[in-house]
Amino acid sequence: MRRRAGLGAIQQQQLAAEKYKDKGSDIQESQFEQMSKQMEVFRLKLEEFAVKHKTDIRKNSQFRKQFQEMCAAIGVDPLATGKGFWSVLGMGDFYYELSVQVVEVCLAANHKTGGLMELNELRRRLIAARGQSAVHQEITNEDILMAAKKLSIFGNGFAVYKVGKGKYMVQSIPGELSMDETKILTAASNTEKGYVTLKMLTEELGWSDFRAKQSLDKTVSEGLCWVDEQDEENSHLSYWFPSLFPGRYAQSI
């Protein structure tokens, strides 16, 4: 015969449920505590690691890159905090310094480049500007990208654009490049000498003549590219980016 549920049974069930709940939160708490402990240990270890390898991180670009990848994987930005334990690294300083140099180098060349500079050229110029010692020479394109991206917090005067595979342009004049301008820049960077024609844009990007002309005129009016009316191969009209012209840095450094 089945026993009918009585008041006592219900009470007992409630009691059990409560006990389970208590136990559950107990476990949760201890897990949390453990996690916190683990995080604390991890933080300490990371700090130890950072202190121990401080010089390596600052001097060795390969090491720095790996360290940064590690930080990124666990969601820590070593640059985000100037104070606290990350400051022992002086990582911030490294990039602040680099950022300032990026600004200096870009601004110095603005009148020639129209305010755009290809990343590899920027690196060459930075190395030339930073002095002879090995510590100063060891900067990678990733370092520069990181430094340049930090500058975007100052408004739209500084920006990094990806043009094509592994190619970046650093912009150092106020104003933002439009989507179309970025596409034109990409098309130009795919040519050996850094130019585009109306035909290239209509054929390769599928733009209308009107859209191509409008966007090119805008690019010219922002001082980013120059007009060549003597280009016989391209029906006497092509548009050239000094920032992408290889002949420029062959001489100027």
């Binding site: 009148h111 020639k112 129209g114 130019y195 010219v220 009016s221 922002e222 001082g223 120059w226 007009v227 060549d228 009316e229 003597q230 280009d231 092509s238 548009y239 050239w240 000094p242 012209f245 002949g247 420029r248 840095y249 062959a250 001489q251 100027s252």
Partner: peptide, 24 residues
């Protein structure tokens, strides 16, 4: 010669004022 001498549009007077001033 400066690098500009091999830059084809250097030989076309530029329509944009700032660029033209720099060119001249």
């Amino acid at each position: 010669w400066p690098w500009e001498y091999t830059f084809p549009p250097f030989f076309t007077l530029q329509p944009h004022e700032e660029t033209r001033n720099q060119q001249i």
